[in-house]
């Protein structure tokens, strides 16, 4: 990988005796937006805290912009962090929250005023400079938290699930807002999330983590279309995953369905490619729900639980109906190894 700006080398992180991340290596390019994706407890937040300097690594090193910062304390690292809870200072006004870091750097008052106003304008909070954080909405608090870090022009900006406290609509707005800010400032960002949609939508590169290790990393399209493990496939929405052995699909009940030619490993299907109405398998509709563009089904079958969908234009199969379905091999995604 060319010219890495942030580089983590064999990082092992632990809380007491509990190892949260082991031997993690990752290179981030300048101006890149990386998302650390994974379920809770996978070590993504821990990794981010280590980059920030809030947690010292058990072993390994962290380099930022060519300098080893492993031993540099958090307050001297030049890294910005937006907390999940925003962590705004409730006793200070919006203006003073943003000015906080500048005042510590002994910047002149005139300069502070200029830079704070400029940065509040960037996040469209210029009108609210005198409000207290408690008088701002969730989205505004979020933007204030961003402005407070960005005004210091950090080398790296870390964001810990920053959108998870916002409602769905606002989350989409903030997502594009973040992208805009990142493109305009060219700042290197590490974004932590457990939401795969968010990770794929934002990132230049997604790092999928599991149990303190990197499971897979790549561009959003690589990860979405070519997950390399069962875990990654499951996380990317391949909800029907079955083992294939010696030319047969292995059902959850142990049954072997021959006629599959894929090499041993697993085959995974997204709900949309499961064909309903005909095919060699039979199941019962256990649940059907309306999802706007489509009907989503949960089907119980001897193979195991299947999720499928049909276009919303058609009338749905009712709950309790028995139906035939197929898992066509040509639409199945091949994975080495079994879940």
């Amino acid at each position: 990988m060319s010219e890495s700006f942030v580089s983590l080398k064999n990082l092992t992180l632990a809380y007491g005796d509990t190892v949260a991340v082991s031997q993690l290596s990752l290179n981030i390019r300048k101006g890149e937006l990386i998302t650390l994706l994974g379920p809770s407890g996978c070590g993504k937040t821990t990794t981010m805290r280590a980059i920030a300097g809030l947690l010292s690594p058990r072993s390994g090193s962290i380099e930022i912009d060519g300098t080893d910062v492993t031993k540099v304390p958090a307050n001297k690292r030049g890294v910005g962090l937006v907390f999940q809870s925003y962590a705004l200072f409730p006793h200070l006004s919006t203006f003073e929250n943003v000015a906080f870091g500048l005042r510590l750097r002994k910047v002149s008052n005139g300069e502070i005023k200029k830079r704070v106003e400029q940065s509040l304008d960037t996040v469209e909070l210029g009108e609210l400079a005198n409000r207290k954080p408690s008088e701002l909405s969730g989205g505004q608090q979020q933007r204030l938290s961003l402005a407070r870090s960005l005004v210091l022009e950090p080398k790296v900006m870390l964001l810990d699930e920053p959108l998870s406290n916002l409602d769905a609509r606002l989350r989409l707005d903030m997502r594009s807002e973040l992208q805009r800010l990142q493109r305009n400032s060219g700042i290197t960002m590490v974004f932590v999330t457990h939401d795969q949609g968010e990770a794929l939508a934002l990132a230049d590169r997604v790092v999928l983590m599991k149990d303190g290790l990197i499971e897979q990393m790549g561009t959003p399209t690589e990860l979405y279309n070519h997950p390399s493990t069962v875990f990654a496939a499951d996380f990317m929405g391949f909800e029907n995953i079955f083992e294939v052995r010696e030319g047969a699909l292995i059902g959850r009940d142990g049954s072997k369905i021959s006629g599959y030619n894929a090499p041993s490993g697993s085959l995974a299907w997204r709900p949309g490619v499961v064909s309903l109405g005909s095919g060699p398998f039979h199941g019962t509709v256990a649940g059907v729900s309306f999802a706007g563009e489509m009907w989503e089904y949960v089907i119980t079958s001897p193979l195991g639980r299947i999720t499928a969908s049909t276009p919303a234009g058609n009338p749905p199969y009712p709950i309790g109906a028995t139906l035939a379905f197929d898992l066509p091999e040509q639409f199945g995604h091949q994975i080495k190894g079994a879940g």
Partner: peptide, 10 residues
């Protein structure tokens, strides 16, 4: 985390 925020700000 408010204290951690302050530390990261310097």
């Amino acid at each position: 985390d408010m204290e951690e925020a302050a530390i990261l700000l310097g």
